[in-house]
Structure formats: structure tokens, C-alpha cells
Simulated scan of single mutants.
Amino acid sequence: MKKIFLIPFFAMGLMPLASRAQTYTYEKSIALPGDAGWDYLSIDKVNDRLYVSHGNAVNVVNLKTEQPVGVIGDLKGIHGIAIDNKANRGFISDGKANAIVVFDLKTLATIATVPIDGKDPDCIIYEPYTDRVYSFNGDSNSSSVVDPNTLKQVGTVELGGGPEFAVSDGKGNIYNNLEDKNSLDVINVKSLKVSANYPLAPGGGPTGIAMDIKNGRTFSGCRANKGMSVTDIKTGKVIATLPIGAGVDAVAFDPETKLIFCSCGDGTVTIIKEENADSYTVVQSLKTQNRARTMALDTKTHKIYLSVAETEPNSRKALPGTFKVLVYEMK
């Protein structure tokens, strides 16, 4: 009888994560200083740090201890944080300053402020194929391209619409949601031109985006229809639309577990399973907290992190001393 029970239990431990039951539950919250608004979260996998945009500062959390370890301050109104481990530099999009602020990933010290020609830089990513940093500028419908070594702007991409989140395939293309055009731009990083534009219908008002590079699929969270559009990047066709919560902002994909996460302002994270490249299933509606709309995924631990604060009744104004990061783990 012992063998009957021991063998399947051992075998279950050897099963890949994508084959196991996958349910997310609340683990803890991490209190952070400051009372301003919040936006993107980013993870530095090399240095095990979480960066949380927070009004005019960035809160920094050690992911090993899950405790705050620093603040990057004296900013004007920030949105996102991009990580370039090759140069040991981080890049912050300071929307109100129309600039990119550069800091040292080890010391968190500010290195430089790079003025750009774009207005209101919002999303920001590091693109490894050409070793460049791209900001996506909400008020100028453009992307500013910065050399992370010289810290100079080296190009501009005209996008043809209002940009939201973007993701690189690491092979020479960036995929960027255009919120006001209900479509997806494909940017050629060599020519700095939009090489294609794909409609996301029935999706509308796309914000967050993630990518399964191996299968050539992008996942765009769309607010207008409360749906996630799955696009085949070879054909530009939407092959599936999945129901998600209201007020989606961020989207993340875990290539090991094959789970897609859509964090929504209605206090939910819709978790979707990629069964294969063309088949998807909603497996969980995770309850979080109202207005916990932004998120980062740690692909090492498979935890997700969402920033949020308590707010005044019928208001978006944060209550003092309530800002935190919510942590959810996979069981």
C-alpha cells in the first residue's frame, strides 16, 4: 500500500508546472511610504528587485525579503520603469518632465536626466535586439528612442495613435497597443518605422500587452469590451477573445506555467490558461482590491504583485499611509 501512494505523489512533484493545478491566493501585503497615485510596476530579475511607480517617486522592494529597500525621488510625475542589466541602468519615464531619468541598478543613485522630444512619456521598455530604450509618449503619439550607453535620444517613431503598453519579441520587433485606434502597431526596430498595424476587433481600448514569443502570440487587454484579444503575429489576425474584468491595465504571461494575467481596476485579476497556441480558457477570477489595476509578474517565483491604496469614498484620492503592494502566490 505504501508504494501505491508514494509513487503518484513523487511523480506529481516531477510534473511540469503547466500540467499541475494552478490556483492563486493572497499571501501578504508590503506597506510602502508615500501617498500619491500609482502606475506601472517592473521587476529586475537579475538583482531581485521590484520597482513601483508612485507619483513623483519610485519605491524599491527587495524580492528576496519582500521588504522596501529604497526610494528614487525628486521626480515630477512618473509612469514606468525599464531595466537594462547589460548597462546596469534603470530608466524612468517622467511624464510631467518630458524626460527619461536614468539610475544605477545597484546603488539606486540618479545618473542623468535625458530630455526627449516626445510629450508625456508613459510606457517604457528596454529593447535588447538593438540595445535601445523606448518610451511611448501619450501626448505626441510617438516613441522616443534612447541609447542606454550614451544617454542620448537617437530616434523617434511616429505611431499613428495613442500608445499604451508595449512588448519586444527580442528579434527586431516591438508590439504596441494603440488605445484610441483599437489596434496593434508592429515597430521595426532597425528602420524605426511602423511596419504593420493590426485591428484588435472585437477588442476596444487596448491597454496592457504580453507576449508568448515561442508561439508568436500577443495578448492585449481591452477595456471597451472587457476582453483579452489574442493575436497571431504572423497573420495579424485575432484568433481568440476571452472575457476579463473591468478597467484592465496590465497583462503578463508566464511561459513556464502558460498562464496569462489581466489585472483590472474592478478588483480582480482574470487568469487565463494557454492550452496551446490557439486554445485558451479562463481558469480563475482572483479577487484583489478595488483599483489594484497595475501588476508585475516574477517568473522565478510565479508570484504576482499589484500596487494599490485605500481611497476616499467616491474619489481616487489615496488615504494617507495606506499605499501597499499586494502579493499573490500560486498554490
Rank of each mutant, 00 (worst) to 15 (best):
K2H: 10
I4Y: 12
F9A: 15
F10H: 09
M15T: 13
A21T: 14
Q22G: 01
Q22A: 14
Y24Q: 07
G34F: 05
D35I: 02
G37S: 12
S42H: 01
D44S: 12
K45C: 00
N47Y: 05
S53H: 07
H54C: 00
H54W: 05
A57E: 14
V60L: 10
K64C: 01
V69T: 15
G73M: 02
L75Y: 07
H79Y: 11
N88P: 03
S93K: 05
D94S: 08
A97I: 05
A99M: 07
A99R: 03
V102G: 04
D104A: 03
I111G: 10
A112G: 03
T113V: 14
V114C: 07
I116A: 00
G118P: 10
P121T: 01
S135R: 05
F136D: 04
F136I: 10
S143M: 04
D147L: 11
P148K: 08
T150E: 06
Q153H: 08
E158N: 13
L159I: 04
G162F: 14
P163H: 01
E164S: 12
A166L: 07
V167C: 02
D169R: 07
D169P: 06
G172T: 05
Y175C: 00
D180W: 05
N182L: 02
S191I: 00
S195L: 03
Y198P: 05
G205I: 01
P206Y: 05
I213E: 00
R217K: 15
R217L: 01
R217M: 03
F219T: 02
R223P: 02
A224V: 06
D232Q: 00
K234R: 15
T235F: 08
V238W: 10
G247E: 04
G247Y: 03
D249H: 10
V251A: 02
D254S: 10
E256L: 14
C262Q: 05
C264D: 09
G265M: 07
G267V: 04
K273W: 00
A277W: 09
Y280D: 02
T288C: 10
N290V: 15
R293N: 09
R293F: 03
L297H: 05
D298L: 10
T299M: 09
K300V: 12
K300C: 03
K303N: 10
Y305H: 06
A309F: 07
E310T: 11
T311E: 13
R316A: 11
R316D: 14
K317M: 09
K324A: 10
